[in-house]
Simulated assay, not measured.
Amino acid sequence: MNADFTADQSLRNGSLAMKSFKSKIIGFSVLLVMGSIAQPGSSQETKRIHFAVSTPVHYLPIWLAKDTGLYSKHGLDVEVIWIRSGAMATLGIVSGQLPLSGVGAASVVAARAEGADIELLACPLDGDVVYFIARPEIKTADQLRGKATAVTRLGTSVHFYLRTALKQLGMDADKDMTILQLGVGAEIATALESGRIAAATLSFRDSLPFLERGWPVLVDLTNSIKYPPSCVASSRSFVRNNPNTVERFLKAYTEAIHVIKTNPVLAKRVYAKTYRESDARVIDKVVDHYAKIFKSIPTIPQAGLETVIRDLASRKPLPKEFLQPDLYKDDAPLQKLIKEGWFEQLRK
């Protein structure tokens, strides 16, 4: 059984267009008894997958693969589900209810460090354009002390970006500002616009209208950190018990990235449809940006993982074995595709 909900409409003034996301979340307790999702130990590999994503455009390959029939081409039945944050997707992976889903590296590292069975399989980006933007009346970082900011949920990529930005300003995110949890990036942009929060870390898409109006950028994180957002993650048990399913999924996923990079017209159509974007200028900017920076081979960046591990270790003691990046990733499925010539085949 699927439950439909509509996220709060995100504010779009002038260059911002009003839009809402029709979202489907599967009740976790229902998924536990659904026979269509194989649990670890099943004698037959599952071909039907529920894949959860949150709102970042980083997940465009997931949607394009669905829209263009690439999952079916590779023998899978994939239902893509909107979910309000990567932290919720992490919970789904750990519980076995969403065996493959989209999650940022920070969520995976935090959960794995607590002993959870979760790992990264592919990351389409080594980093992204991220700005820490303040309201026009904020002139200095010191004016932010005691004011509110926002994340999607604690422990997500947005939270990681916020901590990093405030650290660069000589501030402590846990002490110097009040952090609200607002669910999705568009709601954070709305809160910044309305004055509910004083500043926020915003993605490329959400930052556009503020940059166009000259709102102050207190920190530009674009080139200052390596951080892999919005990766494909799973559990070690699922990968071990369903190697062919994982391989089929990665083929569809990487073929979708190839399509985005080589067929911008199709990519823009899927983006406009999925994200309900009607502004042609925004569509061009967003899709052209990600078509350029998506990696053809979505390897998991070692430097990015090390950044996340250091951040976690600075806030809580970690045993020595949990400081090793290899603990949080599984390169084998993607490396198998590389060795078998899959990516050369795509380029033909």
Rank of each mutant, 00 (worst) to 15 (best):
L64F: 10
G86Q: 11
K47Q: 15
L125R: 01
L121P: 00
I118E: 08
A106G: 05
Q97P: 02
P124N: 06
P56C: 04
S101M: 02
L76P: 01
A116W: 07
V53Q: 09
L60A: 03
Y71E: 10
G104T: 14
D128L: 04
S85V: 10
L120Q: 10
G69D: 11
L76H: 04
G127S: 15
L60T: 04
G69F: 03
V129A: 01
M88Q: 14
S107F: 02
V78P: 01
G96N: 10
L121Y: 00
G86L: 11
A106C: 07
Y71N: 05
A89G: 12
V94R: 07
I93A: 11
L98C: 02
A110S: 08
D77T: 12
I83H: 13
V103W: 07
R84E: 15
P99R: 05
I62Q: 01
L64W: 03
G75R: 08
V103R: 04
R112S: 10
V80K: 02
A111F: 10
I81K: 11
G115E: 13
R84Y: 14
A113M: 04
A89F: 03
L76W: 04
P61D: 02
K66T: 02
A65W: 00
A52I: 03
T68D: 02
P124K: 00
P124E: 05
V80N: 08
L76Y: 03
A122E: 07
L76V: 05
G86V: 11
A87V: 15
H50N: 12
E119K: 11
V103C: 07
S85N: 13
A65Q: 05
I81C: 12
A52V: 01
L64Y: 04
S54N: 08
T68F: 01
G102D: 09
L100D: 05
K73T: 15
E119R: 13
L100R: 04
D126T: 13
A122D: 06
E119T: 15
P61M: 01
V94E: 14
V108H: 09
I81T: 13
V53H: 03
T90N: 09
G127W: 07
I49M: 01
T68A: 10
V108C: 06
L120D: 12
G104D: 14
L120F: 09
A105H: 09
I49F: 05
E114P: 00
A111I: 08
L76M: 03
V80T: 03
M88W: 12
T68W: 00
A106I: 02
A122S: 12
L120E: 11
E114F: 06
G69I: 11
D77N: 09
Y59K: 05
A106L: 10
A65L: 00
F51C: 00
E114H: 10
